[in-house]
Simulated assay, not measured.
Amino acid sequence: MKKIAFYGKGGIGKSTTAANVSAALAEKGYSVCQIGCDPKNDSTRLLLGKVCSETVLDVVKKFEDEVAIDQVVHTGFAGVKCVEAGGPEPGIGCAGRGIIVALEKLKKLQAMTKEDVVLYDVLGDVVCGGFAVPIREGYATDIYIVSSGELMSLYAANNIAKGIARFAERGTVRLGGIIGNSRNIRNEQELLETFATKLNTKLIAFIPRDQMVHQAEINRKTVIEWANQSEQACIYKGLADLLMDNSALTVPTPLSFETLEELVLEYGNE
């Protein structure tokens, strides 16, 4: 079983990337489960064609110990199993704690024992213990960071790398690479390649900014479903293959913030 997690700055495109990768893997014949670890419950929207209304946390609150697998695991495009951990309303409670409860319940239900791939789509804040659970507790072993070439996106990626390096000392978790999600800034791909090298990893994919992604999203579909033969769909399919074949996992070497700023300035001024 491949146990993968996508991390990155909020709004960077983790869920879109995750859903398209899950759809591509399912089309290739893999059994896939995608678990959204964000209280917005929108990780699996493109796979289900709607926002999931039955999150693990909501069902646990309602039924306590009487929760059944089919109440929290839903079937999406191409048979992808879709789960949303859920969380409290904005401003109420700890979202990280919700993830802990949800993942513990899924483990108890043995909801993820038969899949070829389990993909966790995690809110990028690894400072909070709850969002670090997929890394810390070994739910995921192959971590990928989704980032653009923007400074704050790279800053978040660097912080996530610090968390991976810390937990790698006592477990099997490793960094699989950087997934570039373009924002069309100057020298973006070259910047991400250099950043990845300094981080002791590699840029495994660079996803161009394409209107096709927006069109698919507003129609509540992945690009894989909306425009299966498009160039953008082929990029996601290629990324899915890379994730399955990648064995070059590393312990990252995070940069200082000063070095990161200098790097962004260097490529931004070229």
Rank of each mutant, 00 (worst) to 15 (best):
V72R: 00
D125P: 04
L151K: 06
K162A: 06
G177R: 01
E190G: 11
A161F: 03
I179R: 01
V122Y: 03
V56C: 01
V117W: 09
A156V: 12
E190C: 04
G49N: 08
G49T: 07
Q71L: 12
R45K: 13
E169T: 15
G171W: 11
D116Q: 00
G93L: 07
M152C: 11
Q110T: 02
I164L: 03
I204K: 07
G13W: 00
A18S: 11
P252I: 05
I92L: 08
E217G: 04
L239M: 02
L154D: 12
A233D: 13
M112K: 00
G176A: 02
A168D: 15
K9D: 02
G29H: 11
L199R: 03
V73Q: 06
G91R: 08
K108W: 10
A85W: 03
V59P: 03
P88R: 01
N200H: 14
A132G: 10
K81T: 07
F63S: 15
T55D: 05
D245S: 12
D210R: 09
I35K: 00
V118L: 04
A165Q: 15
K3F: 14
G49A: 10
A23E: 12
V118I: 08
A140L: 06
T250W: 09
R174F: 03
Y267F: 12
G176V: 04
G10F: 02
T141C: 11
V51T: 15
F206M: 08
E27I: 04
G238L: 05
D121W: 03
P252K: 01
E261G: 15
K50H: 13
A248M: 12
A68W: 04
V127R: 10
T113G: 04
D70I: 14
S148D: 00
V122C: 09
E270A: 07
F77D: 15
A165Y: 07
T222N: 13
G36I: 00
E217R: 08
L25A: 11
I99C: 11
L47V: 06
I235P: 15
K107L: 13
V251H: 04
E150R: 06
L255W: 01
A23R: 05
K221T: 07
A132V: 06
Q71F: 13
S22G: 08
G177Q: 03
N246C: 11
F6E: 06
I204A: 06
